[in-house]
Amino acid sequence: MRRFYVIGFGLLLLFDTLAQISFKLAGDYALPLEFGPAWLLRVFGAPWIYGAFVGYVGAFFTWMTLLRHAPIGPAFAASHLEIVSVLLLSHGLFDEHIGTLQLLGALCIVAGILCLAVGETESERAGATLEHLPPAPHEPPR
């Protein structure tokens, strides 16, 4: 189950980040913003917007697979790690400024994810069943 979560949330983070960064690149490339066919042609004529599609679709399928086992409360919270990756990448790629509060917030999010990870490891070690879900047929009973 640990592997399932690490791979699942890792993929989700990758797809979510890809979508956000691609949207930004697509928007930047298509500047100036105007509501007409010329702008749309610029958006869809560059590869970036397709990265955003891949990110959205990939994130959807990953999320629905994760939710098979993951409880929605902690999983929904954990999906916000995307904010940290986008914050760091937008600093590296677009020279966006990261303020003290934003840095503090990013640290809080990472600390929260660590709490969730430790909590799951502990409950698995204690032999507690994951949730309300019975084990899936292909898995050994916990």
């Binding site: 999010i109 994810i113 709490c115």
Partner: peptide
């Protein structure tokens, strides 16, 4: 963990 993440956001 959840409250920490909410605070961070």
């Amino acid at each position: 963990g959840i409250l920490l993440i909410a605070t961070g956001v």
